[in-house]
């Protein structure tokens, strides 16, 4: 099970991001945090010694056809930036470690787990989130298909699934059931409505061809 969970562009970020993001836990954090936070904690002793601190960085990127310039911290993930700085809360924080696909967005057309992607790496990229799928109030065929087939229950994983579906159909416009299953295998739906999700992707694929 969980086959094909790691998608393109997701594997090589883990160590680095895990290291940086992890500075909330472990002795390492005690060493670097006083530099970023206020000075009151400076007196805390640590065995870890000095660790290089990455500076904040200004990045420019496009999200849903809109250009943004944002100053991000090195440990911030793309998911955090989308949700906290851009108020795009469609992508969800579900596992926060690349296991479930609830945060899936498209980066230069490829599906990524935005919780595993450092924001500083998004500099110069083109990102599409669930909020960019409908055009001028008209739903994307995938969105309509998810409604028609009731391809959700609680709806929490739905934005991630729709983005993964979009990536799948861009790559393969006429997928069979096996290809749909594989294409969505990086996303988890705990309510367990996969059967309906397959039907929705199939409907959207057919709509795209007609």
């Amino acid at each position: 099970m969980n086959k094909g969970k790691m998608k393109k562009g997701k594997t090589n970020t883990f160590t680095r991001r895990d290291f940086l993001k992890g500075f909330g836990s472990g002795t390492l954090g005690v060493a670097i945090t006083p530099k970023l936070l206020a000075q009151k904690a400076e007196s805390i002793q640590t065995k870890a010694g000095e660790v290089p601190v990455y500076a904040k960085k200004q990045i420019k990127f496009t999200v849903n056809s809109k250009a943004y310039t944002k100053v991000v911290e090195p440990q911030e993930t793309l998911l955090d930036v989308l949700r906290d700085k851009l108020s795009l809360t469609g992508a969800k924080k579900t596992c926060d470690r690349g296991e479930c696909g609830g945060c899936t967005v498209l980066l230069d057309g490829n599906p990524i787990y935005s919780c595993m992607y450092l924001a500083i790496r998004a500099d110069g990229t083109n990102i599409k989130t669930i909020e960019g799928m409908a055009k001028e109030g008209k739903l994307h065929p995938l969105q309509q298909a998810y409604i028609d087939k009731d391809a959700y229950q609680c709806g929490f994983c739905t934005p991630g699934f729709i983005m993964a579906s979009e990536a799948l159909l861009k790559k393969k416009s006429n997928p069979d059931l096996g290809e749909i299953k594989k294409g969505l295998s990086g996303n988890l739906c705990r309510c367990g409505n996969y059967t309906k999700i397959y039907q929705a992707v199939d409907q959207a694929a057919k709509a795209g061809r007609s």
């Binding site: 469609g90 989130t129 739903l139 969105q143 998810y146 934005p159």
Partner: peptide
């Protein structure tokens, strides 16, 4: 079909998170 389907598929449904 669900009356709130559009909210869900556009990412606009406000979850507590």
């Amino acid at each position: 079909k669900r009356i709130d389907g559009k909210k869900i598929v556009t990412g606009k449904a406000p979850f507590t998170q």
